[in-house]
């Protein structure tokens, strides 16, 4: 019986949530295609990780070695490709994360099998991979068909698939250490600590966030005025930090902060997935964007399709009037 293999992702010895999500994605496909579901756990000191995974898969394959304690594309590619060649899974899954994005493409070329990245839906039809993913900053979806091959790789988007527990506990198998490259041309030197920030947008009740639609650095004052009137703070999408218009501790999204305020007012933000991930659980989302089709309106509760430079000043004026300010 064939299998679907999920490569686990660890951070400081803990299995990251994306691994359980990838297992959830794998479970659906495995059930339909009559395949087993296995996790490949690569690293060092793996007891804790091993235990947490047992409820989610049929097999846990362990490759444990001191030299694998930290992710490095060179060593991990060597391990995963050898395991793949030995077990010939129908499908290899991992997260579309800093690890999956780094590892999956080279692995696909080395193994000569197609890879589809950042998947929202995955299907094996007669053994062939079909996937749904987004294009054009989330404005359109596409269904991709992979070339016919002996196996496939797919990376899955975070926060899309639900973990699925099973009745039985996964069987643990230790695999001998595959051959590792003797000399590494890529070496991990360390990891920086997250920068301590002065203000924490995570604890704010009210956030006014600006995106590229704000146009100029000087226009941020408009959003600041609105935030001040509401007793909130300002935050932003990534391009605003990239341009140096606001410090990085104001960035909301997958590579920034995750916020859940009572009110999130979004001005000129398109709503790319990496941004939305950081704010979609806000209690009330009001978005202003010129484009009715902007993906931000997929998560907003209220939307205004108009120029933010007309709406924001009007809003400021109304709130000032209400507060008896001039």
């Amino acid at each position: 019986m064939g299998e679907i293999l999920v490569l686990a992702e660890l951070r400081q010895g803990e299995v990251r949530e994306i691994t359980f999500e990838a297992l959830g994605a794998g479970r659906n496909v495995a059930a339909k295609a009559g395949l087993k579901l296995s996790t490949l756990l690569v690293g060092y000191n793996l007891e804790r990780a091993e235990d947490g995974l047992a409820d989610y898969c049929d097999n846990i394959l362990i490759v444990e070695d001191e030299r694998l304690g930290q992710y490095n594309s060179e060593t991990y590619q060597a391990v995963v490709s050898q395991v793949f060649r030995e077990r010939r899974p129908a499908l290899l899954l991992m997260g579309h994360t800093s690890m999956g994005m780094d590892l999956a493409p080279r692995l696909a070329v080395e193994l000569g099998i197609p890879l589809v990245t950042d998947c929202l839906e995955i299907e094996l039809v007669d053994g062939r991979l079909y996937a749904v993913r987004q294009m054009y900053g989330g404005k359109l979806n596409c269904r991709v068909r992979a070339r016919e091959a002996e196996g496939y790789i797919a990376t899955v988007r975070q926060g899309i698939f639900k973990p699925v527990k099973i009745e039985s506990r996964g069987l643990v198998t230790r695999i001998g250490i595959p051959v590792l490259p003797r000399e590494l041309r890529r070496r991990v030197k360390g990891v920086t600590a997250p920068v301590k920030s002065e203000i924490s947008i995570e604890s704010a009740d009210i956030i006014v966030a600006v995106g590229r639609g704000i146009g100029e650095k000087s226009n941020i004052a408009l959003a600041e005025e609105l935030a001040n009137l509401l007793g909130g703070v300002i935050a932003c999408s990534r391009p605003i930090v990239d341009k140096g218009w606001l410090p990085s501790d104001r960035q909301v999204g997958s590579s920034g902060k995750t916020v859940k305020p009572k009110l999130y007012i979004s001005l000129g933000i398109s709503g790319a997935f990496q941004h939305v991930m950081g704010m979609m659980n806000s209690q009330l989302i009001i978005a202003v964007n010129k484009d009715r089709n902007a993906p931000i309106f997929n998560v907003a509760h209220y939307g205004v399709v108009d120029d933010l430079f007309k709406v924001a000043p009007a809003l400021i004026k109304k709130i000032r009037e209400l507060k008896g300010l001039r």
């Binding site: 197609p114 294009m135 404005k139 359109l140 979806n141 596409c142 269904r143 068909r145 992979a146």
Partner: peptide, 16 residues
């Protein structure tokens, strides 16, 4: 290796 079969507007339920 990859071919796009269909391109379409996401069919999401908007609560907006």
């Amino acid at each position: 290796w990859l071919a796009i079969e269909e391109l379409y507007t996401p069919r999401v339920e908007r609560r907006v």
